[in-house]
C-alpha cells in the first residue's frame, strides 16, 4: 500500500512537471473552446440547451482525444523504465509488481483527470456564462462528461500498459499504442459501418452490431453520453441505435470498466514475467 501511494504520487508529480501534459490539457481546452464558440454561434434560439449541445460535441471530441492522451501517458510506463534501468531499482525494492502497476495507474488516471477537468471544466463554464447562465442542470452534463471521459481514459491507460509491458523498447511501445488508438477509435467504427452496409438481411444490424458496439469501450462511452443527452431531449436522433442495445444508459459504461480490469489484469500478468 505504501508503495502504491508513493508510486502514484511520483507519477502525478512527473506528469504535472512534464510540459507535455500541460500541453495536452491546453489542446483539450482549445478544441473545447472552438466547439463552444461554434455551438453558441447560432445565438438566440437554443439558449437553454447551449451547454448541452456543447457537451454533445465535446463527447465526440473525447472519443478521439482522450484515448490518445491516455495511450501517450501509458505507453512509456514499463518499457521506458526498462529502457532507463529504473524498473530494476523499483523491483529490487520490496514492492510487489502488482503494486507497481496499480500505483502507476492511479497516478496516470489522476493526471488525466486533471487535464480533462481543466480543459472541459473551463470550456463548460465559458459555454454556460456565454449564454447568459441558464439551467444549472446543464452543468451536471459537463460533470458527467468529465467523469465518463476519465473512465474512458483509465481504460486506455490500462490497455496502454499491456503494450508497454509486452515490449522492451519505448519506440516499439509507442508504435503499438498508436496502432491501438487507430484501431479502437477509427478502424473499428469503419469496419462496423461497412458491416452495416453489407448486411442486407438486417441480421448483423439487429443482433451482432449492438454487441460489437458496446464491446468497444470508446463506442460504449459515446453511447452513454448520447443516451444521457437524449434524456434531456436534445436532438433525439443523436443516439441512433439506442433502443436495440444490450446495455443502455449508465450500464454501457460497464464496457470501459470491464476493459480497464482486463487491461490491468493482463498487464500485471505480463509484468510478472518481465526479467528486468
Amino acid at each position: 500500500m505504501h508503495g502504491v501511494i508513493t508510486i502514484a504520487a511520483t507519477e502525478i508529480r512527473i506528469g504535472l512537471r512534464n510540459r507535455w501534459i500541460i500541453l495536452s490539457s491546453l489542446i483539450l481546452l482549445a478544441f473545447a473552446l472552438i466547439l463552444v464558440l461554434l455551438g453558441s454561434a447560432p445565438g438566440g434560439e437554443v439558449k437553454t440547451d447551449a451547454v448541452t449541445v456543447v457537451v454533445a460535441s465535446l463527447s465526440t471530441l473525447s472519443v478521439y482525444l482522450v484515448p490518445l492522451i491516455a495511450l501517450l501517458l501509458s505507453f512509456d510506463a514499463i518499457a521506458g523504465e526498462i529502457d532507463r534501468g529504473t524498473l530494476q531499482l523499483v523491483l529490487a525494492s520490496p514492492v510487489s509488481r502488482g503494486s507497481v502497476l496499480v500505483g502507476k495507474f492511479l497516478g496516470h488516471v489522476a493526471v488525466l483527470a486533471i487535464a480533462v477537468s481543466f480543459g472541459y471544466g473551463i470550456a463548460g463554464l465559458v459555454a454556460f456564462f456565454a449564454n447568459g447562465g441558464g439551467e444549472a442542470v446543464a452543468l451536471i452534463g459537463v460533470g458527467r462528461l468529465i467523469a465518463s471521459s476519465t473512465i474512458l481514459g483509465a481504460t486506455f491507460i490500462a490497455i496502454g500498459y499491456i503494450a508497454s509491458a509486452s515490449v522492451r523498447q519505448t519506440g516499439t511501445a509507442a508504435a503499438l499504442a498508436i496502432a491501438i488508438w487507430l484501431f479502437a477509435v477509427v478502424l473499428y467504427d469503419l469496419a462496423l459501418l461497412g458491416g452495416l452496409l453489407a448486411s442486407q438481411d438486417g441480421f448483423f444490424a439487429r443482433t451482432v452490431f449492438p454487441w460489437l458496439l458496446v464491446f468497444n469501450p470508446a463506442d460504449a462511452f459515446r453511447l452513454y453520453n448520447m443516451s444521457a443527452i437524449d434524456a434531456l431531449a436534445v436532438g433525439s436522433n443523436l443516439g441512433g441505435a439506442g433502443s436495440a442495445l444490450p446495455l443502455s444508459g449508465l450500464a454501457s459504461m460497464l464496457s470501459p470498466v470491464a476493459w480497464t480490469a482486463i487491461g490491468l489484469g493482463l498487464s500485471t500478468f505480463i509484468l510478472k514475467r518481465v526479467r528486468p
Binding site: T10, R13, I14, R17, N18, R84, G85, T86, Q88, L89
Partner: peptide, 10 residues
C-alpha cells in the same frame, strides 16, 4: 545498476 537514468523532472 550499471546504467540508470532517473526521471529528469525530479
Amino acid at each position: 545498476p550499471e546504467q540508470v537514468a532517473f526521471p529528469k523532472m525530479l
